[in-house]
């Protein structure tokens, strides 16, 4: 069932149904989707259209009701919980809408976390953590804990953490939803730069116009179905 290795994400007939019978919610209804390496793509659609569901299913955080997902040619359905964890650790960076830092760890420790899981040597860890936090503009705040950071600063930490392990794919679920437009555009600029420099693949979900402007591909989702796919 392995697919051509070129696609970062490939889905086939993906459906997701929450609940059963009369109260069943069809969050995804047959999504066929391919994301190629180096894309800077936004999944857009009204609230409840299934954006979050799609990202969760694609990253293995949630299981589809039917259909298949391949990540870099590997079928998710064949992976154990542990293999899936390891795959995420090594290949996917996450940025969530809000509150996605570990509250008891400092900004630096949050960023370092994945490197620790990967078993990266201490020296290299320090260096990369410092590098990334500088990159997102948080040099002086590395030892602060999440409660002592603003929402924007927290999101920067989250982006730094998502990128620190140099994953091939970054999934960001409404990364700017809780930020003012200025902070939002700063982050988007930063991500765009990273995308261009490193060729990392970015997939956002959003209903933020600004994000749509930055994106080079817009995938429109409506009632769990792709209703439009435009590349700029």
């Amino acid at each position: 069932m392995a697919k051509a290795n070129t696609a970062v994400i490939q889905t086939e007939g993906l459906t997701k149904v929450y609940g059963e019978d009369r109260i069943a919610v069809h969050a995804l209804r047959g999504v066929d989707w391919v994301v190629e390496p180096g894309e800077f793509t936004a999944v857009v659609g009204p609230s409840g259209s299934g954006k979050t569901t799609l990202l969760n299913v694609v990253s293995g955080l949630d299981t589809p009701t039917s259909g298949n997902v391949w990540l870099k040619g590997n079928p998710l359905s064949g992976m154990t919980g542990r293999a899936l964890s390891d795959f995420r650790r090594d290949h996917i960076g996450f940025v969530f809408q809000a509150y996605n830092l570990i509250p008891v760890l400092t900004a630096a420790e949050n960023v370092e976390y994945i490197l620790l899981l990967q078993g990266v040597p201490a020296e290299e860890r320090q260096q990369r953590v410092h590098e990334l936090l500088t990159q997102v503009g948080l040099e002086g705040m590395t030892d602060r804990r999440p409660p002592d950071l603003s929402g924007g600063q927290q999101q920067r930490v989250a982006i730094a953490r998502a990128m620190v392990a140099k994953p091939s794919l970054i999934l960001a679920d409404e990364p700017t939803a809780n930020l003012d437009s200025e902070t939002g555009s700063q982050l988007l600029n930063m991500m765009q730069a990273l995308n261009q420099e490193t060729g990392m693949t970015f997939v956002f979900s959003t209903h933020d116009r600004m994000v749509m402007d930055y994106a080079r591909r817009l995938v429109r989702l409506h009632d769990g179905q792709i209703t439009g796919d435009e590349r700029k």
Binding site: R82, F87, R88, R89, D90, I92, F94, I102, Y113, I114
Partner: peptide, 16 residues
């Protein structure tokens, strides 16, 4: 639970 969810998303193994 949210925290555990984040840890999981980041690639923390179930055993951990």
């Amino acid at each position: 639970r949210r925290e555990y969810g984040v840890l999981k998303a980041l690639g923390t193994r179930p055993g951990q």
